[in-house]
Nucleic acid binder design. Structure first.
Lengths: 348, 348
DNA sequence: TTGAAAGCGCTAACAG
DNA sequence: CTGTTAGCGCTTTCAA
């Protein structure tokens, strides 16, 4: 293979003129005579000339590439955020290289290195659920390589970020359960060291408090953010002497797994157990019953993250804006009890 | 910003030696004395030296980047295929840039151009459902830019590809329905010009034939590959005088939408209508009842596609291997009728 | 065993 | 208006 594409030199030689003239003509520099300009541009079109970004990059010291690291690729949540980023990136003539950490710290570190090797100008990342050490990010900061976090952030680092108000959202979910007659509200949380876990748990506790319920320790379980662990967590909840009448999953993956397990126990949703998820995946409306969930402004999150990234490039290290976006509870069937009276008798 | 990273020159100057010596030492060239080599490598480590891929690319005329275009990003099917590609690419030191066509021909063309501009060495693509003109691919072929298709291919072009045996799979689905007592087997197909539509439809017809059923034209509907159209198609099927006792969706997205619509009509699945999808999305087991589907060897498809790509790079234009992989029918609840006898009475 | 120089494709400052 | 030249970072002859 190795078919060289047309270069400025090729065009210049073919026309018997200098490279710089060709270069100028192609950018419509007024110093070049109109006739020559046209002649050059025509030849360029015929020869299918595409400027070599490597040469440009070398010269200008920029690759026009942003590295994005997400915990996984198959979740609508991330895909949608990435779309938002691409939108903004494209406007600025930037490309995005996506890497997935698969929720693994090792793979995350590796991705950072790989992306750096391929000379992205900076990174936009949502940390993996395992991430509890941060040297790989500290190196970036030390070298003044632009870094932006979204959704899951490293709170101890002074880095711009886009997140949602998880505490507020979780509080509202808890209240929503309460208003639907639930009194034994369980919460399946994620790893404690993640900001999203911490915030949502805080909101859950606050919600209980505001509703005058006290925390039943058995109803607060922690698990890793995968379906298997969520299944186990749910099983644990369903094996309690007094089972919960509501379960709140820290995200939709957890909620889907919980739903499966609840069905396996032949417990009707929402009447015996109401269920709510978080992030509002596409499949929320496919499952039966449709899952109530907390929607995230994903496109906007992506756009804002990209915007912060470019600000970061312009303003340099001092920049560390932290953006917090609101969410909205979308009520579907999984959380609205038809038989509120029956449920009310279960009040503890 | 614009913090230049350490270059060979920086290292050379710091040690008061020549650039070429540094370059050689860093690749353990035996011509450099061991002491010097060690000294240089140590400094490189301290200074966090990373070779500049732009410079290398310019020199060697290769970017080590592969462009991948998929119809969408949020489907497990594509994500998983991409994982397979990345695996193989990584072994060869290549990176993947992903672009999504969003099932639009316009966006697909745009993606081809953008990826070319960013100088990927070639493309691996699954065409959009709208794609019915191919100039944007013909240009690639003319310029001898490596191109590989997967899943949905342009059959008129001599290009290496990885697909599955859709005809065989669809035939098996039809037989499976038959063996479960279904006699009015409907098929929701995709756009006629797509190879996957054509193959699967062919398999469906062959299956009917082998089972001694004749095609009921009303039961064969065509739609675009999105949930809305699938809903309409299903509605049409359910409004027939004699409704089908089985529906086969050309993919899982279609099947999910059909499932929703069937439920809306309060028709029990699978007893009144059996349902089978294609591609076996992750959520097949989340829906109720769990969806019978045709699994694809997605990881393998990705790996093979990448492998073909590299062969393409090595062997040049003449290479056009067409790989066809087998699938497997995974039977779940949505297609196994418990009340076969009752259903048998419905035989047309 | 090491250094000097050319060249990959391009832009921009400097000459003409 | 057009050409010449230097240089971005790197590898690779060719020279020493």
């Amino acid at each position: 293979m190795k078919k060289r594409l047309t270069s400025l030199k090729d065009l210049a030689e073919e026309l018997g003129i200098s490279i710089s003239t060709v270069s100028r003509a192609l950018k419509n520099n007024p110093m070049i005579s109109p006739e020559l300009t046209i002649k050059i541009q025509e030849l360029a079109a015929i020869k299918n000339y595409i400027p070599n970004p490597l040469a440009m990059g070398l010269l200008k010291q920029q690759t026009k590439m942003i590295g994005v690291i997400v915990p996984d690729l198959v979740t609508h949540f991330y895909s949608s955020i990435i779309s938002g980023m691409e939108e903004v990136a494209k406007e600025k003539g930037y490309y995005i290289i996506i890497a997935s950490s698969n929720e693994s710290l090792e793979k995350e570190k590796e991705s950072v290195n790989n992306l750096l090797k391929s000379r992205v100008e900076g990174l936009i990342v949502c940390i993996s659920q395992q991430t509890n050490s941060f040297e790989h990010f500290e190196i970036l900061i030390k070298n003044e390589i632009p870094l932006v976090f979204f959704d899951r952030v490293v709170e101890s680092l002074e880095v711009p970020s886009v997140t949602v108000d998880g505490a507020e959202a979780a509080k509202n979910v808890t209240r929503h359960f309460y208003e639907n007659g639930c009194r034994r509200i369980a919460y399946i949380s994620g790893p404690e060291h993640l900001n999203i876990s911490k915030n949502r748990k805080e909101g859950y506790l606050k919600g209980l408090q505001e509703c005058g319920l006290k925390l039943i320790p058995d109803l607060l379980v922690e698990c890793n953010l995968n379906a298997e662990e969520a299944t186990l967590a749910t099983r644990k909840l369903l094996s309690l002497n007094q089972i919960p009448d509501a379960i709140f999953g820290i995200n939709d993956t957890i909620a889907f797994a919980a739903m499966k397990e609840i069905k396996k126990h032949k417990l009707p949703i929402p009447d015996d157990i109401a269920l709510v998820g978080f992030t509002d995946e596409f499949h929320s409306t496919v499952v039966e019953p449709a899952l109530t969930s907390v929607t995230h402004p994903t496109l906007q999150m992506g756009r804002e993250a990209a915007r912060l990234f470019f600000e970061c490039i312009e303003k340099g290290k001092s920049f560390a804006e932290k953006l917090i976006l609101p969410t909205k509870l979308v009520v579907r069937e999984s959380s609205v009890k038809r038989l509120q009276k029956k449920t009310m008798q279960n009040v503890q």
